[in-house]
């Protein structure tokens, strides 16, 4: 009998969408500030904003008291509070950032103001990107989470999905310039994605092997589940093959295949967050497993009907 998971799919979705939104914002801001290619990725801040809003919605859905979510913004020093502020500020600055690209507002042509907003969005994006991994890695007894390797892995995956997301919106509305420029930027994003994918797959394999060879029996059990246990299919097929290796090959083909590859990188990010959130194995105390086995099961419908 397994203990209940602390967090489930909404939090996995939140962590994924947070990483994706942050990654898209960062890549767009970097392209805008350092390479003058921001116009081509004008849709990215809006896409990032939608990801962050949807992710926040999932987080609120997971709360025991969703209507009290505003309390998270009270003056505390918890990682989650820091993250919530980063996310909400990034939503605001992504909205502002998009307003420059949309051309709908009187300030849309103000290049200086856009640069300031881009710098702030970049910093906030980095904050959100790092926070999603740090939030999990701060949980001391959760063996697969409590390692500095996790924030690195999440950051790499977040940036990879961010580049992939930006690749998919590159040259789309509100950009109205020549298509050749969009193709030129896509030509830069493809090798960037490939490099990040290689780094992510190496980090992911090292992360799992580190746990597999760990002296901690709980870590070994969790890693074994990924490598050849009940999570082997989502790990090998979802996160590694379909989410990293296959899209890497598709990138070489270019065109629509590369776009499909970018989409698959994003799907790989989903698998990684789900695998991680559902691997919340805690260091066991002597006798705990036996106690769980002793708890009655099979009586749930009866108990529910009588005591709710």
């Amino acid at each position: 009998m397994k203990q209940h998971h602390v967090w489930t799919w909404p939090i996995a979705g939140y962590l994924f969408l947070g990483g994706l939104g942050a990654g898209m914002s960062i890549v767009c801001a970097v392209a805008d500030l350092f390479f003058g290619k921001g116009e081509l990725l004008g849709l990215a801040p809006l896409g990032a904003l939608l990801c962050l809003c949807l992710g926040s919605g999932l987080l609120i859905f997971e709360l025991g008291r969703p209507l009290q979510f505003w309390r998270v913004f009270s003056t505390q020093r918890a990682v989650l509070t820091f993250g919530a502020w980063m996310v909400i500020l990034l939503v605001v600055f992504d909205a502002l950032y998009f307003s420059f690209f949309s051309g709908w507002f009187p300030w849309s042509a103000a290049a200086g103001a856009r640069a300031v907003v881009a710098v702030i969005a970049l910093l906030l994006g980095l904050g959100v990107l790092l926070y999603t991994g740090i939030e999990l890695s701060s949980m001391k007894a959760r063996v697969l989470w409590n390692t500095p390797a996790l924030p690195v892995l999440f950051a790499l995956s977040g940036i990879l999905t961010g580049v992939a997301g930006d690749y998919l919106v590159c040259g789309l509305w509100p950009y109205g310039g020549p298509a050749a420029d969009a193709e030129a930027l896509a030509g830069i994003l493809r090798p960037l994605m490939a490099g990040l994918a290689v780094a992510t797959v190496v980090s992911l394999l090292l992360y799992v092997l580190m746990m597999y060879t760990s002296s901690n029996p709980t870590g070994r059990t969790a890693a074994t589940r990924w490598l050849r246990g009940s999570y082997a299919l989502p790990f090998w097929l979802g996160a590694v093959a379909a989410g990293l290796v296959l899209p890497l090959l598709l990138l070489i083909l270019g065109g629509m295949a590369a776009a499909l590859g970018a989409l698959l990188f994003i799907v790989g990010g989903v698998f990684l967050r789900f695998l991680t959130v559902y691997s919340d194995d805690r260091r066991e105390l002597a006798g705990e497993r036996e106690r769980l086995l002793k708890l009655p099961h099979g009586d749930e419908p009866f108990l529910k009907s009588n005591w709710g």
């Binding site: 602390v6 967090w7 709360l63 025991g64 008291r65 009290q68 989650l80 805690r282 260091r283």
Partner: peptide, 25 residues
């Protein structure tokens, strides 16, 4: 003040915090 986010449940090494399904806290 509790919003039932589950962070403390994840953080407790002893599994001694529980979310009440009824109240959510």
């Amino acid at each position: 003040s509790c919003i039932g986010c589950g962070a403390c449940i994840a953080a407790c090494p002893y599994d001694m915090r529980h979310k009440d399904k009824g109240s959510g806290v």
